[in-house]
């Protein structure tokens, strides 16, 4: 698999992404890139559901938020190091998703999409009422928590690199799944679930597996991100809006492709950064995102990459 130039391209791009702000020592750039990286993780993993299996998960942010909570809880209450804490968060959320997936994935299409909204909101409300996690006020980190990473300043750089690593892992996972039997089964489900089942694709198991797989890296990223922020609260951890924006990103770049969602996330984040700084637009961020989604869905449902593929079919082979 390492003979494929596409993989080297991903790794090279990730290295540039990781090292550019480091060598220029540009903290502002790092923060903007970090946010984009988090969005790439969310979009890329959401794409496993939307683009591959054809299931819209409106509540995808619940993985990110729960991962963040578990990680911060382990760091503050049990004094774990952030890396095992984030990984544990990822594993726990992934296992939870597997259990949950077996239930709600019995629902098809729109019913599933509705249920995911319900799941996100229910978990947010549960956390609001859950005192060990600080209820509505959430969990705060004290500065001591950054000690193991060499102090707060150094910790910011370290978490940045770790998040870029998770981003790279997300893209590689997207690639690996796309080129596996598992991925082929998912694509079949996405095209026509009944036909896939008659062809022998074990649909319930595959759906639960991809739901669980799409939970792992976002949950790890949630741990790292909220560790870096030093605070997590229910409203920011389970923000339905972010969930929806992740869908916009996937659609913008091209659902079902490997690079598309990452491209969409990056572009969307840059666009938003621009709109936020431009005075007259800052109020209309939501309107613009909505209008963008509307235009994509109606006129270019394949997104940027889908459009390129349609315009120049040969690009399908190397631009995945």
């Amino acid at each position: 698999m390492w003979r494929r130039p596409f993989l080297w391209f991903i790794v090279a791009a990730a290295l540039v992404y990781a090292l550019y702000p480091y060598f220029t020592d540009d903290v502002g750039m790092r923060e903007s890139l970090l946010l984009a990286a988090v969005y790439i993780i969310l979009a890329s993993n959401l794409n496993l559901m939307i683009g591959y299996a054809g299931y819209v998960n409106f509540g995808n942010i619940v993985f990110f938020g729960l991962g963040g909570y578990i990680c911060l809880y382990l760091v503050t209450a049990l004094h774990w190091h952030v890396i095992p804490a984030a990984l544990t968060g990822g594993a726990a959320v992934s296992a939870l998703a597997l259990l949950f997936g077996l239930g709600i994935l019995r629902l098809r299409g729109a019913f599933f999409a509705l249920a995911t909204i319900g799941v996100n909101q229910a978990i947010q409300q549960l956390v609001v009422n859950f005192e060990p996690w600080g209820g509505a006020t959430g969990i705060y980190l004290s500065l001591d928590a950054y000690g193991p990473l060499g102090g707060p300043m150094q910790a910011l750089w370290t978490t940045y690199l770790m998040i870029v690593a998770v981003t790279t892992a997300s893209l590689l996972a997207s690639y690996a799944i796309r080129h596996s039997k598992f991925g082929l089964g998912l694509l079949a489900i996405g095209q026509n679930e009944d036909a896939a089942s008659v062809l022998g694709v074990p649909t319930p198991r595959y759906k639960a597996m991809v739901y669980s797989a799409s939970a792992f890296l976002p949950a790890v990223a949630g741990g790292l991100y909220f560790f870096k922020s030093g605070i997590i609260e229910p409203s920011s951890a389970f923000n339905l809006q972010t969930s929806i924006e992740a869908i916009v990103m996937v659609m913008l770049g091209g659902s079902g492709t490997i690079l598309g969602p990452a491209l969409g996330a990056f572009l969307y984040e840059e666009l938003r950064g621009f709109l936020l700084t431009a005075q007259s637009f800052s109020q209309f961020q939501l309107v613009i995102a909505g209008a963008l989604l509307l235009l994509i869905v109606q006129f270019v449902p394949g997104g940027l990459l889908g459009w390129v593929h349609q315009r120049w079919p040969r690009t399908r082979r190397w631009l995945e």
């Binding site: 729109a110 929806i244 613009i288 909505g290 509307l294 869905v297 109606q298």
Partner: peptide, 13 residues
């Protein structure tokens, strides 16, 4: 779903 959600975002925005 996505299309009506987009309308939702525009209206709320």
């Amino acid at each position: 779903l996505l299309s009506t959600f987009a309308l939702n975002m525009v209206l709320i925005g």
